[in-house]
Design a protein around this nucleic acid. Structure first.
Lengths: 170, 170
DNA sequence: GGTAGATAGTTGAGGGATCAACTACCTACG
DNA sequence: CGTAGGTAGTTGATCCCTCAACTATCTACC
């Protein structure tokens, strides 16, 4: 931002870092936008619905607890409830009580959900390849994956400690 | 996804690529979530409002055309109109007719907007540093920036050609 | 065994995003 | 000129997300 330059380092970013940060912001924004557009225009599932069904497809019995699903998709409980309710109304998933914990709810993929997932998968993967994977050198893409794994861990951890950040701004 | 394995390559991703892709998804989701939480809990501007004011702060006269703003922030025209309307109601920005093109509208940052931006900046940058920059080796972060610049270009270009993707799914 | 506090999930109200229409203006070309 | 098609921005209906309650259940500990 165009504020008077400060002497002390460690508060802002260097020019180089700023550039990297801007590119990160623009790249991630344009990527989800383009991928979402492919889903909306050519596939029977939105990106969010698709991701949810992918998670379910990998779980034993194609069934997961609501909370596990929420954690895996980085979604709030509330948002997951609403999303699953809409998908249930469309026949893509079904909910039933979990055995063992009477608070728990299991969400499972229906046959219709599986059919929709299989129909959407080729277009989805083709878009990911075209827009993300093939934009990069093979090892550059793998390095991106390793870096983002670190970021994920760092962000997961920041959830607990973030109150302390306010202290930086007195 | 847990579909029967196919013989032909070039349709799905390798195990390694899948892993990188999952890490990318999780990392980007957790990062925006954590950064947004910092804004919502400790700063006077949401992440979106902050980004908008940053763009304005760098423009001559702290003023930009609506469409330039929309492009820079990767936002739809409609969304920008609504967002700016809300921010205008809060006194953070102001709109006025653009000279030269009577269709055009200029959006400029008010003093109150600038004050809010300055108040939010340290907390914002601290969060970006903590969650993203310091999670990585310095050159790893710069490589991330270079990679995402390529992704941005690829996604920008995909906007025009994406109809062809449907052809993959007969 | 009873009660305090955490965990699982849902609900509804309110606010933000999306999409398709719409106005207004500009450009170009006959 | 005039009109066809593009560009700039807005609007409102609809849908989706968020947030703060809320119910119900589980755990632990006295």
């Amino acid at each position: 931002m165009a504020v008077e330059t400060v002497e002390e380092g460690d508060v802002w970013l260097t020019e180089e870092q700023q550039g990297a940060w801007r590119h990160y912001l623009e790249g991630s924004a344009r990527f989800v936008e383009a991928l979402g557009a492919v889903h909306d225009r050519t596939l029977p599932l939105s990106l969010g619905e698709y991701s949810l069904l992918v998670q379910l497809s990998e779980a034993p019995g194609r069934t997961m607890r609501m909370s596990a699903l929420a954690d895996g998709l980085v979604l709030s409980r509330s948002r997951l409830t609403h999303t699953v309710a809409r998908m249930e109304a469309r026949g893509l998933v079904a909910r039933c009580a979990a055995e063992g914990d009477r608070r728990g709810v299991n969400c499972s993929m229906t046959d219709a959900g599986y059919t929709a997932l299989v129909a959407a998968a080729p277009g989805h993967v083709a878009a990911v390849r075209r827009i993300l994977v093939e934009a990069l050198e093979p090892d550059e893409f793998l390095a991106l994956g390793r870096a983002m794994a670190k970021v994920a861990a760092s962000a997961r951890e920041a959830g607990g400690t973030q109150e302390g950040l306010a202290a930086h701004c007195d």
